[in-house]
């Protein structure tokens, strides 16, 4: 049921003006929508790979250790990056992303100079201390950081990665990999297996790939 914020606003406003439930106006499309999505759903792990140029926005994020960091500086420190979006009270989809990130982390080992980043799409709820708890739960090591910040900063990050769907409840599974600053991002939509992420990671960080563009 993805829905642009503006249509929600309009539905809400009209409904409020009429004193009706927004659902009254939105109802007709609900079930048809679902049906369509049902068929669009990828079955067994059909993750889709694309590449894209994304510009990290000029915003500050707050890391789980409470430190305010500039997003660009944080992700352009030279290390390869694996990046994803989560929220700590997300029960269905995010645990998969985080479990996969953990396997990625564990398979590469603690000495691999990689930066794993999980960015909250529910930043007001996800305070640094809640992020620390979440990071512990998923076994995040020294290379894996979680980020929150102002709502606008989180939205800017999601928009920059074309992952903004208007509301946290509409999010979808997607992961991003980049070999180095200036290189394109590999975007993997759907549930990627950790091995798939590792293969992707090896390919883009191979010396030959890094030398070319």
């Amino acid at each position: 049921m993805s829905r642009s914020p503006s249509s929600w606003l309009i539905t809400g406003v009209v409904a409020m003006a009429l004193g009706l439930a927004a659902g009254d106006l939105a109802r007709a499309d609900d079930s048809d929508d679902n049906h369509a999505h049902h068929h669009a759903v990828p079955t067994q792990s059909a993750a889709q790979r694309t590449t894209a140029e994304y510009t990290i926005p000029d915003v500050d994020l707050v890391r789980e250790d409470g430190k305010v960091v500039h997003a660009r500086a944080e992700f352009d420190d030279g290390r390869p990056v694996l990046l994803g979006f989560i929220f700590t009270t997300c029960a269905a989809i995010c645990p998969i992303t985080s479990a996969t990130f953990r396997q990625f982390q564990d398979k590469l080992g603690p000495n691999e100079p990689v930066h794993i980043a999980s960015i909250s799409i529910d930043p007001e709820q996800d305070t640094p201390s809640r992020l620390r708890q979440y990071a512990r739960k998923f076994g995040a090591g020294a290379n894996w950081q979680h980020y929150t910040g102002a709502v606008a900063a989180s939205v800017a990050m999601q928009r920059a990665f074309e992952a903004y769907r208007g509301d946290k409840m509409d999010h979808a599974a997607v992961a991003f990999l980049r070999a180095a600053p200036g290189k394109p991002w590999v975007r993997i939509d759907g549930f990627a297996a950790a091995d798939q992420l590792i293969a992707e990671y090896r390919a883009i960080t191979a010396p030959s790939a890094l030398a070319s563009r």
């Binding site: 993805s2 049902h38 759903v41 989809i93 769907r165 509409d170 999010h171 599974a173």
Partner: peptide, 9 residues
Amino acid sequence: GNVEGNIVI
């Protein structure tokens, strides 16, 4: 059940 993102539960 639920609908989460594009997934029907």
